[in-house]
Design a binder for these strands. Structure first.
Lengths: 221, 221
DNA sequence: GCATGTGAATGGATTCACAGCT
DNA sequence: AGCTGTGAATCCATTCACATGC
């Protein structure tokens, strides 16, 4: 059971994003045999304020020891638990193009807490093929069965703009409640389904804007 | 020249991110032969507030007509210009693994405003190979010349965690001032260089947190 | 009348500053 | 002495509401 003092306080998305970052750092510190770490130390590593880190961590209990700091192993375990990573979640990738294939083999997608069960595609040419690491491509038609049999909880949309909404709707129908979307579209959303979008184009354009600002002599940053 | 009323007001990153989204929508509306669009209409398409859209657009001039809305073609051109997309920016990808290869062929990276000149890698096995669409892999050693000769302005880090900092430092030395980073690390940053990070693992963990919250009966969303 | 542009109000996240514990 | 946990203060983004202009 969680050591959370108050089970229904809402933890912001900003905070949980940083928890992931802290967790990564703690994993490193643990492997470096560091026993304890202070919020100030963590704040240095990223460009953050130490009070913010303390606030983030305080969301689900009192983990630190005053005068000392946080126990690395302890805090790491707590974060793993809070993020729900102490249990395996199955992933299905929709779209076996370049991006889908690359994601299938991406380290970190098949690490602690996650396991990719396969890819699906509508192109019969691709059926039976596998990614380099051996993740198979199956027919989109079989998606509902795949989801049910393997208890897939997360869907990754690596399809083109045109197919994204259909793929999304299909996954939701099949019972998937969390989606990582790489298609550059704002989809009509379903209630009770979490969608996170990674829009590569927006990131590039943001860099372009920065470069232009520099050219124009407008000091940013 | 920009129609910007006041050249040195700082436009927030939140805003520029949305400008990209608006631009995409306008491109669509233009292709659908729509002549004019209102902030309320745009607000519906995304889940946004119309006032926010007007504020965003007002950052660099008065583009709308009261009682009518915004001229689609006009506004689109203005956004293209403001985002600096009316000029070609060259991209170099560092790391020719699965991800680098997938990114090299990603539509939208070789579209309006951007052009990928190549990939570099340290693995001699990969030299001379190309992505499916023909983007070549060259030796990392040649990176500085490549950057200079091709006027590369943007670097994409598609390398592993261990090499990320070195690759970053190298690109900056060679004169690159904008970086899109896919490695899951917080890098020691250089002044005057813009880095945007896409952390796939954090996105997955955020979904995991959502799923766990649902399991625990904590209503999110 | 209708939709923009914008000051004022709100809401949320970050930072400050310090009380409290070890 | 040192560092956590947290109310108070600050900062920034979003939303409201309305005056302004077509």
């Amino acid at each position: 059971m969680a050591t959370r003092p108050n089970g229904n306080e809402p933890i912001s998305e900003m905070t949980t994003g940083r928890l992931s970052v802290y967790l990564r750092c703690l994993t490193y510190l643990e492997s470096a045999n560091k026993l304890t770490v202070s919020s100030a130390e963590l704040a240095d590593r990223f460009h953050l304020n130490s009070a913010q880190i303390r606030k983030d961590l305080a969301c689900f209990g009192e983990f630190g020891t005053r005068g000392v700091g946080y126990n690395v192993a302890h805090l790491k375990d707590a974060l793993v638990h809070e993020l729900g990573l102490d249990r395996m979640r199955k992933i299905l990738i929709v779209g076996a193009g370049n991006l889908g294939m690359a994601l299938a083999d991406y380290r970190g997608f098949n690490e602690r807490g996650f396991h990719i069960v396969g890819m699906v595609d509508i192109d019969p040419e691709k059926f039976g093929k596998t990614s380099r690491s051996g993740i198979p491509v199956l027919p989109w038609d079989q998606m509902p069965q795949l989801v049910r049999r393997n208890d897939v909880e997360i869907g990754i949309l690596a399809v083109g703009t045109d197919s994204a909404q259909d793929a999304y709707d299909g996954l939701v129908d099949a019972g998937v409640r969390a989606i990582l979307n790489f298609a550059p579209v704002q989809m009509r959303s379903h209630r009770g389904v979490k969608v996170r979008s990674v829009d590569l184009r927006i990131n590039l354009e943001s860099l372009s804007f920065y470069l232009k600002s520099v050219e124009d002599g407008i000091a940013l940053e």
